[in-house]
Design a protein around this nucleic acid. Structure first.
Lengths: 215, 215
DNA sequence: ACGGTTCAAGCACGTTCGTGCTAAGAAGAT
DNA sequence: ATCTTCTTAGCACGAACGTGCTTGAACCGT
């Protein structure tokens, strides 16, 4: 064996460099040369760990998806362990939803990277697989959360997917606004919007509309 | 005077070429050479109408912002002319909100371009001004709409901005999902989510939370 | 001591990009 | 017919990009 180097750790260092570049300069600036510079390596060294630029980006996408999904699963486990309706439960729900938002430095970087990759995946086929995995993972957690929070436990299938998508859309929209218009979108507004949404989720749906949806 | 050419019309043709490229290949592919090809011109010709690549992109951003803002104003005028609570009124509100979503080919192109520019504006200072204008224009319409739809007419200032931001976030989130995950996000789901949101908007807020927000 | 494997670094090639500059053509004004 | 000005087109340069390939250096098992 050669020089002892933890290959996986090195790869992660390079990926972290990719994250920093995307967060500050955007995905289009995440070239091999820029990444190598940011990581303190030479281009050839980065290419030793990642066969191509595409592989580096796809792997980076995967890492951020795993991170976000892991945070959501952890936060959901906390929610799941608490008594529904209790103060701690509500706080845990807000904490879970806050994992989507750029509320601190680390979350902001991940949110930037996540957004950038998802939008890039619309165009670049290599990113499609990770984008689909990302969507499934997040939708699963949000779906379970909505099922837990809805008054009827999500017994009406159509209404459940509608409410899950509604929460997901609000979360992504909030995240987007927090990233793109940070001066208008403070953490306080985010919290107010989320609590307002949770209020509407708990309230029973108007029967008029449920009937309308059935037709 | 030389060859008679409607300069403004030519500029618009070039801008339309930019839109098509962004919608199909993304903003990073909207180079002068690609745009010139798509518009059936030479690079020098495009540069005759736009001094630089930046000017072309900024102007294109402005055009799409004007288009979207115009559509929203028109749709709001329709809403404003109808009796609140009537069936036509509700339909007009849905039509207004639908202007944000890629429900047909033209709307889809505009939504793609709009999203691409807004995200690019996070990084590129030249786009900041148009991004801010875009946000103000849209927020103004959504704010007026929310004021009109809320049961108390938006008398509580804090609650009004929260609800406006909540609707805006949901709209942008829906638009994003419709663009990025078209297979999961059909027009029907969009409509269901919007109607569900409107139901929650009309319902009075729980006094518990209003008090909580005040503290 | 030494061969083999892994790591780090760099060169070179072709492509694409924005942009400064030049030049030919087209048409109204004189 | 000539001049002027707008229009269209193209060349050339430097910069940045991905990538194939080569070159040392480091290190471990034998």
């Amino acid at each position: 064996m050669p020089k002892i180097v933890d290959a996986e750790a090195r790869r992660l260092e390079v990926v972290e460099a990719v994250f920093r570049i995307i967060a500050t300069d955007g995905l289009e600036r995440a070239s091999l040369r820029e990444v190598a510079d940011e990581a303190g390596l030479a281009v050839g060294s980065v290419r030793h760990y990642f066969a191509s630029s595409d592989e580096l980006l796809v792997h980076s996408f995967g890492v951020v998806v795993d991170r976000i999904a892991g945070r959501l699963e952890d936060a959901f486990a906390v929610v799941d362990s608490l008594e529904p309706g209790s103060t701690e439960h509500d706080a845990a729900v807000l904490t879970l939803l806050g994992q989507f938002l750029p509320l601190d430095e680390e979350l902001a970087v991940d949110a930037c990277v996540w957004m950038a990759f998802r939008h890039a995946a619309r165009i670049r086929p290599v990113l499609e697989k990770e984008a689909a995995r990302s969507h499934r993972a997040v939708a699963a957690v949000v779906g379970r959360l909505v099922m837990r929070l809805m008054p009827d436990g999500g017994s009406v299938q159509e209404h459940l997917v509608t409410e899950a998508e509604r929460l997901l859309a609000t979360l992504d929209g909030l995240c987007m606004h927090a990233l793109l218009q940070p001066e208008w979108m403070t953490a306080e507004v985010c919290r107010d919007v989320l609590t307002a949404h949770l209020d509407t989720l708990v309230a029973p749906p108007s029967t008029v509309n449920v009937k309308a949806h059935r037709e």
